[in-house]
Design a protein around this nucleic acid. Structure first.
Length: 684
RNA sequence: CGCGAGGUAGAGCAGUGGUAGCUCGUCGGGCUCAUAACCCGAAGGUCGCAGGUUCGAGUCCUGCCCUCGCUACCA
């Protein structure tokens, strides 16, 4: 049994507000976990903060003509507010832009440098003279050296899927200034992950085979099996924490080096504010450390950060890293840029005082083992059929009956029948059952077990029928209502981790002193609420959600899509001038598609047979994501016939069909008379 | 043959060798204290496909198929 718990939730990145995906994947489960531990009287520290460095923030600032500081201040405020209003009860929520974090991160870096952990490497990188900046990964585009796609990124070509180095690109171009970057040599600090392979193997692959989630374990195993590589932990940027050692001038720490250290600096900040010592929470072996994250963070929390701590010495390692999968919205990936999301700050305005509904729905349908889908239909159904009909209704029945028969005073329990006893015994099992589910990070199960108690209550009332007996055997009714009230009180305690706002309302309604009743007291149900105790008036814990409200939400998403289309009308920049000879060398013909078939085992490739009049040709085209084979047959397209043949997945492709590509990256057929072909559409 | 996770009733999930289960939805019935809520019953499954191991396979092995992720400013 650990002496204390340090629980962290992934630091949200402050380049936008947070949405239901963040809540479902990380913050609600972490909050349930810590609330439960507190109900058990454990020493728990729940830590989080804003992650405020990295390329994306400086990029966003440049785009909006603001300073990075303005960006992070804005979103830190919004995010902080959303958390507070959703009852995510952090002990401390810090920021990585604070001084205490700079000190902490730099100290760890210096310590590793002193221990000669890092390797220094010099390499040639692309440099934008105009912007006076090195161009990493996505800051540069150019022609793919493998498939000649003209707009490959510095790290990857989306056309052929090859993974690239920015320096391999033919004719590279800066996405910042549009200029042609030069090669310049630069020096960086590398964390040699490869030297710690055995450490990770022993710790995770040997030590946590059984107790870690399969997705997390599998991901780590995959990384280790492929061989860990040294990883640069510094960057040539002006936004971030300065590299605090000689030769580090003008460089900053890689955001993924400093961000997880934010957990530690946030703990220090908390300790300072509370006049206590932070170190036991990170260095005492009797502390259980748990990181709640999304699956995209697995490598950082299971490999890189633990290696940093291990190399530094003294620090404890996480006992578990219960990473969740992703949540989709109405069948599509949640996307910040496409505004395909339910934003928490907007939900709070549109569904006032209904935080618990969202908490419940996201818990009941949490993406624990695979990606899940959030739909407004399900949201409505879970609210109306479960929270309202089962939970809220049970409470309402009990409280209304108690007022009707006994003026709101808890009646005496006389002789418990075997049936009463069986019901109470069933309730007695639940604290442990829910607790076990939570301790094993099975929050879906915990939420269902909680609802079992409300169901049990409804069934108890239906089976014992106090409204009938009140006419024939009023004495028996006192026992029934006493028992039902115990169940209501049990609910008020056991729902606290998942539905904290409801717990508070219910505690008030029953006039209970929440501090007196512990989690385990529910197992001894006879004492939860005593005879003679006066309870408060009934009011509804949950409101029905009507169809119109859901319709509005769905419409709102449609509007996002429409706005996004307007965005996509923006015209791609013009290419450099070319010659007539170049143009006339192209042989363009009209062709009719006569057969189309998806190439198996690929995402994008479609095998087409086209009729050119004199001959049929086979063309392989990367359009399978945007079209169905059946819709293509019979279509007329422009075919570039004299392109060199290329073999893709063993099929020789003879030519290329010309399609429009809008700025979302979706292909459309080119027919200038067609509605879909907006003015300025790119053809290639 | 890149790697990882998933594929079980209309939907969402549990079930790691021994009679296929839970919640929601659907249909039928009961009840009327309650937010037309609650309770009971029924229908609904070739457990992705094909082989194999076993007395016995949703569960173990092999091959294949599909979805998602690793790969977009997203957890």
């Amino acid at each position: 049994m650990p002496k204390r718990y340090t629980v962290t939730a992934a630091l949200p990145y402050t380049n936008g507000p947070i949405h239901i995906g963040h809540l479902a994947g990380v913050y609600v489960p972490a909050d349930i976990y810590t609330r439960y531990l507190r109900c058990q009287g454990k020493d728990v520290l729940f830590i989080c903060g804003s992650d405020e460095h990295g390329v994306a923030i400086s990029l966003k600032a440049k785009k909006e003509g603001k300073t990075p500081q303005e960006i992070i201040d804005k979103y830190d405020l919004i995010i902080r507010d959303s958390f507070e209003k959703f009852g995510i009860a952090f002990d401390n929520y810090s920021r990585t832009s604070r001084e205490i974090h700079y000190e902490t991160a730099q100290e760890i870096f210096k310590n590793l440098e002193a221990k000669s952990v890092f390797e220094l490497k010099e390499s040639e990188q692309l440099f934008d003279e105009e912007a006076q900046q090195f161009l990493a990964d996505r800051f540069v585009t150019g022609t793919c050296p493998i498939c000649s796609h003209p707009e490959a990124y510095g790290d990857q070509c989306e056309s052929c899927g090859s993974s690239l180095n920015a320096t391999e690109l033919i004719d590279p171009k800066s996405t910042i200034s549009g200029g042609k970057p030069a090669l310049k040599s630069t020096k960086h600090w590398y964390l040699p992950l490869n030297r710690y392979e055995d450490f990770i193997k022993n710790w995770i692959l040997e030590g946590h085979k059984k107790d870690w989630k399969p997705n997390v374990y599998g991901q780590v195993k995959s990384w280790v099996d492929n061989g860990l590589q040294p990883r640069a932990v510094t960057r040539d940027l002006d936004w971030g924490i300065p590299v605090p050692v000689i030769g580090g001038e003008g460089k900053v720490l890689y955001v993924w080096f400093d961000a997880p250290i934010g957990y530690i600096s946030s703990t220090k900040e908390w300790a300072q504010q509370n006049g206590t010592d932070w170190e036991p929470y990170w260095k005492d072996k009797e502390t259980q450390l748990v990181h709640f994250i999304g699956k995209d963070n697995i490598v950082f929390h299971c490999i890189i950060f633990p290696i940093i701590l291990h190399a530094n010495g003294h620090y404890i390692l996480p006992e578990n890293v219960p990473a969740n999968e992703f949540l989709n919205l109405e069948g599509q990936k949640i996307s910040t840029s496409k505004n395909w999301a339910v934003w928490l700050h907007e939900y709070l305005e549109e569904f006032p005082d209904q935080q618990d509904v969202l908490r419940y729905v996201l818990t009941a349908n949490a993406p624990e083992t695979k990606d899940n889908d959030f739909t407004w239909d399900e949201f409505q159904a879970r609210n109306n059929n479960e929270l309202v009909a089962i939970f809220g209704n049970f409470i309402n029945r009990v409280v209304v009956l108690t007022h009707k028969y006994y003026d709101g005073k808890v009646p005496k329990s006389e002789n418990l029948t075997d049936f009463d006893k069986a019901v109470l015994e069933e309730m007695a099992l639940l604290p442990q059952k829910i607790g076990q589910a939570i301790e094993q990070y099975r929050f879906r199960e915990a939420s269902q077990t909680l609802m079992q108690l409300a169901r049990l209550g409804n069934k108890y009332l239906a089976d014992s029928e106090p409204w009938k007996l009140i006419k024939t055997d009023p004495q028996r009714v006192t026992t029934i209502m006493h028992t039902a009230l115990q169940i209501a009180a049990g609910l008020s305690i056991l729902c606290e981790p998942i539905l904290p706002f409801t717990a508070e309302k219910l505690t008030k309604m029953l006039c209970l002193n929440s501090k007196k009743l512990s989690w385990d007291s529910v197992s001894d149900a006879s004492t939860l609420i005593n005879a003679g105790h006066q309870i408060g008036e009934a009011y509804l814990l949950f409101q029905k959600i009507e169809d119109e409200q859901m319709e509005q939400q769905r419409k709102k998403l449609e509007v996002s899509v429409a706005e996004n289309k307007i965005e996509s009308l923006k015209v791609a920049p013009l290419k450099p001038k070319t010659t007539y000879e170049n143009f006339s060398s192209l042989d363009l013909k009209v062709a009719t598609i006569i057969a189309a078939e998806k190439v198996s085992k690929t995402k994008k490739l479609m095998q087409l047979t086209v009729d050119l009049g004199e001959e049929n040709r086979t063309v392989v085209s990367g359009i399978a994501q945007d079209f169905n084979p059946n819709d293509l047959i019979g279509k007329k397209v422009t075919l570039l016939t004299n392109l060199h043949p290329r073999t893709l997945k063993g099929i020789e492709s003879n030519g290329m069909i010309l399609l429009g590509e809008n700025t979302e990256g979706n292909f459309v057929f080119v027919n200038p008379e067609n509605k879909d072909a907006k003015t300025g559409l790119s053809i290639h």
